[in-house]
Design a protein around this nucleic acid. Structure first.
Lengths: 292, 292, 292
DNA sequence: ATAGGTTTTGTCAAGCTTTTGTACAT
DNA sequence: ATGTACAAAAGCTTGACAAAACCTAT
């Protein structure tokens, strides 16, 4: 189930099944159709109503509006109103707001649509530094202030992780210098590191990505096994670095190690620190590699 | 009876012996020969049928096919068809071995190439249950035995997570029942849960995915906010369940909750458990949802 | 592999066995065939229905859809959709067919949806060489045979150009070796060249892209101005090369020039020729650059 | 919400044919 | 060993029927 399904969405429901799925009686569904034109079912050869998934969505919207206190006529008007698909060129601020709304409603399709529009309108660098990374920060802040639930934060990072990882495909191939990326032990936030990797990739690096919560011995081992010179270890929380400070400094003597992520600002180690944004630091690392 | 009486110099069997060895009556053997050309015995000077061991194999194949439910004509066609071993490129065992080699060498391009070939050759269900999930298990086992480094394990799961998440796009769309998937608190292994979600998706479910390490209050909150009936919480380690047993049982009273993942086997809770593989349990959940 | 899997390859079932395996009564199976064309069994000499494993799959799909609440007619329509026959996640042939249908109907959303699904399921390399480039060839062939209108051909190449160009963003940045790509003078087909550029980019090259119909003096000038060593000139029609043969040979003495595209096969020049597919030749060029 | 009519769909039956294991005469 | 016969099992087609689900109109 793939190609046709993506567009064609689904089959058609008869009124009984629509009723079952929406919890609205068939009589009422027909009344809403007759009175407010809420639904526009196609018909079978014999005249039975056939509803699409869009109809089901409209019924659900109608129910939400009714529950919110609107009169039936108004609720129907709201539910049938077309979703404005304004094709503005590239508006990072509006996009962040859109993402926030979509995440609040667990609306996966909308999140993807916003990301599609963004990636269609601007470079990955721009989308990462103007939208995705700031959005993640905002999300984190609002989570701390209790304005966003853990579920919403998880939902959002799941989708973003999927989108970003999809862009990483093949990022270890080719001719450029190879760099190893890993999160410090016990560090679970990997999205910033992935973004950093993507920024590096678009500058010609080959990425060996180990991801969240990687023991430093493994980092060192992999760097040795794959003969890598450059290594970046990332953490959002400074304690993650402090807990392994000696090992980090040892690795720094062996390889060209940098540490990055929000956790670096308060840490004092004998290791170069990437304190800026992912794209900015990718640019700096590239410049460094050029001279090396 | 002497050996020489039933088997002649060239190792050829007479019909009685073929009958005895195969359990098929001589009459029926002759009928199969006449009707379907199943057997092509040579003849003795006196006209007696002389069967080779290949004939015996064909008879046994015929019996297997009959037992499998094929009618005689079709079973014979299958038994006489030349063994064209494999003209289709789906070889799960070889693929797993390939993946292991590629991962050991941190060869990202090769991992992707293997996955491309697999996804092009078989259904997602098959690839998940024959290759990806077993591969992850093998990887875990070999990690426990120290044959695989953490770095290799991380490298592999990063790539697989990216590929699987890419396939999840739009999995919340459609007409089917909606189901919430989350890992138990402190549980970081999400790949099995993603695979389970994909298997459910291909059976028509709509997926709301919260991912690793999700507090149960968030699960409950999201289930309420999005009006979801079905919820699955997963963990690889049983302690993850035990630590939140009361909350799980409370949630189970409120929603249709199941728990799954390797961690369920040793846990004793008043909550339905999904103890099988991802695809298998997806099938079961689908059946369950039907009865609801 | 289980015995059943081997047999399922192409064994034929009679209606009783199909009934046993699916749990659907023979009467109902015949009714579904008669009413909805769900099954298309071949017939034995005497007229008995003979079903393939694909038929069994269709019956099972039908049952799933019924269980999901669809009425029989709608469930059958879903189960007979061509995509259900090969529900591999990555089905290049099905995708090409889908693209052709969508193009014939000027259905842009569907073209995008198919491409989205493909790029989610496989690597760009695979999609280029398995789907996009073959599709362009088919389109050209069918245009020559008059089966496709100019409008359809323009529509398709417009969309594909847009999608591919969106992926080229920033492809001149970074650390890799630089390569100049241009179409020969008067050559308008640039899609293959873009695909080639993308394959090179994913291997670490930096691309300087001049596009369709570029005078060779401009190519030479740009190569000199940007100090580029590698140059590829492409054409679909051999005359485009012949018309500028001396200049090509001169440029080849100055830079590492290759010529590519469908037009190279019949041309005889003192210039290295890239006669294979875009991805394949990108791999070769990468290997060359490595040794250089 | 009800009444009265229509469509859809699973099931069944009658009468006939094909398939297939077994039996028997030569 | 061969060829023919035979009867049970399984299938085929046509036609019909009744319960469930839907329709419109009041």
């Amino acid at each position: 189930m793939l190609y046709a399904d993506v567009v064609n969405d689904d089959g058609l429901l008869r009124i009984g099944e629509l009723s079952r799925r929406s919890g609205v009686s068939p009589e009422l569904l027909r009344a809403w159709e007759r009175r407010y034109g809420l639904l526009r079912p196609t018909r079978s050869g014999g005249g039975l109503r056939l509803y699409s998934s869009a109809d089901l969505e409209r019924v659900r919207a109608m129910q939400r509006h009714l529950a919110a206190g609107f009169a039936a006529a108004e609720a129907a008007a709201l539910a049938t109103r077309p979703v404005d698909a304004s094709d503005r060129p590239y508006a990072p601020d509006a996009a962040r707001a859109d993402l926030a709304t979509a995440v609040a409603a667990f609306d996966e399709a909308r999140v993807h649509a916003v990301l599609d529009a963004l990636l269609g309108a601007a470079t990955l660098d721009a989308v990462l530094s103007d939208v995705i990374i700031p959005f993640l920060h905002e999300l984190g802040d609002r989570w701390e202030r209790g304005e966003v639930s853990v579920a919403q934060e998880h939902f959002a990072s799941g989708i973003l992780r999927g989108r970003l990882l999809a862009l990483t495909r093949g990022w270890d191939r080719g001719l450029g210098p190879r760099i190893l990326l890993a999160c410090a032990p016990r560090e679970q936030h990997d999205l910033g590191l992935i973004a950093f990797g993507l920024a590096l990739r678009s500058r010609g690096f080959r990425i060996l990505y180990l991801g969240a919560d990687t023991p430093l011995e493994s980092v060192a081992g992999a760097a040795r096994a794959a003969a890598l010179e450059f290594v970046v270890v990332s953490a959002v929380h400074p304690d993650r670095f402090r807990a392994v400070a000696p090992q980090l400094e040892e690795l720094a003597r062996e390889r060209r190690l940098s540490i990055g992520g929000a956790g670096v600002v308060e840490v004092d180690l004998e290791v170069p620190r990437l304190t800026g944004g992912a794209v900015e630091e990718a640019e700096r690392v590239t410049a460094l590699a050029r001279t090396a």
